[in-house]
Simulated scan of single mutants.
Amino acid sequence: MPTGVAIRDVREQLFDAADRILLRDGPSGLTSRAVTAEAGVAKGVLHKHFEDFDGFLADFVLDRVERMDAQAAALRDAAGTGDVVDNVAGALAAVFGSVAVAIVALVTFRDELRARLRRTWPAGVPVLTEAAIMIGRYLGAERELGRIAAGADEESLGAMLVGTGHLLFADRTGPAPAPEAVRRAVAAVLGGALPR
């Protein structure tokens, strides 16, 4: 790309390129050269906007976590409607059907990235932690409506459901689990928390 040509939304362009690379090639394929080539920009563009490549990756991960806000709001708004198990199974499929599984692999693959994320994200893997919070809050709303047992620990259930979802979706190179398999797993985790 010639110098002096303005690039609109360069961060988003680079982040979208990172999404495509992660989904196609996994964390080992995600390099600064691969990102700039995929985005169609000069390599210097990345370093102009980010301190270094790990800084880019940290911002990328946090941006993708922020994108979950709309999904979290939609799930909370679903409280009191539909079937609880179906709502949670759909939320898990949406989280893990996205770039989230690849981001988990990326975070565990790169020590420096984990160290940078700890500066602003004190515990857990950001995408998984945010998903557990999202599902826990939804279950809390359902508990208030009487659709989840009064004594249910929604935070623990959210974490267990995300862990279960991660196990189901962890192999990004194989086929995604069937929706019925996800639903069965959710029903098993929530079994004791659902009113009879």
Rank of each mutant, 00 (worst) to 15 (best):
V65W: 04
A94R: 12
V99E: 02
L117P: 02
G29I: 15
H166F: 13
R119Y: 14
A181N: 04
A58W: 02
L14Y: 00
E154H: 14
I7G: 04
R118G: 05
A187Y: 09
V189K: 11
V127R: 08
V186A: 04
H47S: 07
A39Y: 01
R76S: 13
P27L: 07
H49G: 02
L57H: 04
G97R: 06
V182H: 01
L145K: 15
N87V: 07
L30S: 06
L157G: 03
D19N: 15
I7M: 09
L92H: 03
A37L: 12
R143I: 03
M68H: 09
F56T: 01
V10D: 12
R20Q: 10
D111T: 07
V41R: 00
A91S: 11
R67V: 05
G146M: 08
R20Y: 07
L22F: 06
A74G: 06
A178S: 15
A79E: 01
T3L: 06
E154F: 09
L92N: 03
V85I: 08
V104S: 07
G140F: 03
A188T: 06
L145T: 09
A181V: 11
A188K: 10
L92T: 05
E142M: 13
R110D: 05
G82D: 04
V101G: 14
P122M: 05
I135K: 00
R67C: 01
K48A: 14
V95F: 03
R20E: 10
D77Y: 04
I21E: 02
V104N: 09
G80Y: 01
A141C: 06
E180S: 12
L75G: 00
Y138F: 10
E155T: 12
F53R: 00
A17P: 03
D25K: 15
S98D: 13
A141G: 05
R143D: 06
D153F: 03
A170S: 15
M68C: 07
R110A: 07
G29Q: 11
V162C: 11
G151V: 14
A73Y: 05
P2L: 11
V88F: 08
F96I: 13
R119C: 12
R118D: 10
D52H: 03
R196N: 10
E66C: 08
A6K: 14
H47A: 11
T120I: 12
F50V: 01
V95G: 02
F53C: 00
M68A: 11
P27Y: 09
